[in-house]
């Protein structure tokens, strides 16, 4: 019996798979978006702590960073998935009354993804903070600004421009990272594909369709960040001098 290429890979089937997957894109984006917020807030916090070398907190932040960077995201997801209920059960044995099954699955993914990315984002932020000219900070201080004002008005706006390419990377990393959240039982696009392929065993078509979807999302994000970066950058050419 002859086997045709379409027996292994049917382009038609792949296209027909895409609309079913697209339906779950909001879940993917929601996961990535929430994790992004967590990573930005915690990342900035860690970065400022390490930048200012805050006592006690700085070594804790460094240890956290080392742990998060030193272990795979998949393992962290599993640890969160099995670990959080385990901890809650201990609390319950002490008399607390928390229903472990009620915790939304999103929470695990949200924590694991967010904290994992926070570790990387914090380094982006720290490098950006350190790139701000010390002289400008001094000039602002000499004007009579408090450190909080210097941070808000001078350091953060300048650091942000330098951090943008890194933040873009981190968003893209998060979007792709959400595919691992399927292991926590969240039905986002990757898990959706597992379900659909489970019916007709057309895994390859599904994975290729997924690849296309992730790729397109990434391209759109890159374009958005390009625009944002352009908005932040000082133009190469000066404006024309106004006649007085």
């Amino acid at each position: 019996m002859d086997t045709k290429f379409s027996d292994y890979f049917s382009v038609k089937l792949m296209w027909s798979r895409i609309p079913y997957l697209v339906k779950k894109i909001p879940i993917t984006l929601e996961l990535a978006g929430l994790a992004f917020l967590v990573s930005i807030v915690i990342g900035l916090l860690i970065a400022v702590i390490r930048y200012k070398k805050v006592k006690i907190l700085s070594p804790i932040a460094t240890a956290f960073l080392s742990l998060m960077r030193g272990t795979p995201m998949l393992i962290q997801l599993y640890v969160a998935y099995y670990g959080i209920p385990a901890i809650l059960r201990i609390f319950n044995s002490w008399g607390a009354n928390i229903d472990v099954n009620v915790i939304p699955k999103m929470v695990y993914a949200f924590f694991a993804l967010g904290l994992y990315q926070a570790a990387f984002t914090s380094e982006t932020f720290r490098a950006a903070l350190e790139s701000v000219d010390k002289g400008e900070i001094e000039a602002a201080t000499a004007m009579g600004m408090t450190y909080g004002q210097v941070l808000r008005r001078i350091i953060v706006p300048e650091a942000l421009e330098n951090a943008l390419p890194g933040i873009c990377n981190s968003v893209i990393g998060l979007v792709k990272g959400t595919s691992l959240a399927s292991t926590c039982g969240i039905i986002e696009i990757t898990y959706q594909n597992q379900i659909l392929a489970g019916r007709d065993y057309r895994y390859l078509e599904g994975y290729v369709a997924l690849a296309i979807i992730y790729w397109i999302i990434t391209i759109i994000l890159e374009k958005i960040f390009k625009l944002v970066e352009k908005k932040f950058r000082i133009p190469e050419q000066p404006k024309t001098v106004e006649e007085v």
């Binding site: 000219d133 000039a139 000499a142």
Partner: peptide, 20 residues
């Protein structure tokens, strides 16, 4: 210190303008 700095201006050797 902040109160003092508010009333004393300084021009630096390398100017230190806010680049952005």
């Amino acid at each position: 210190v902040t109160a003092l700095r508010k009333r004393i201006g300084m021009v630096f050797q390398k100017f230190y303008l806010f680049e952005h």
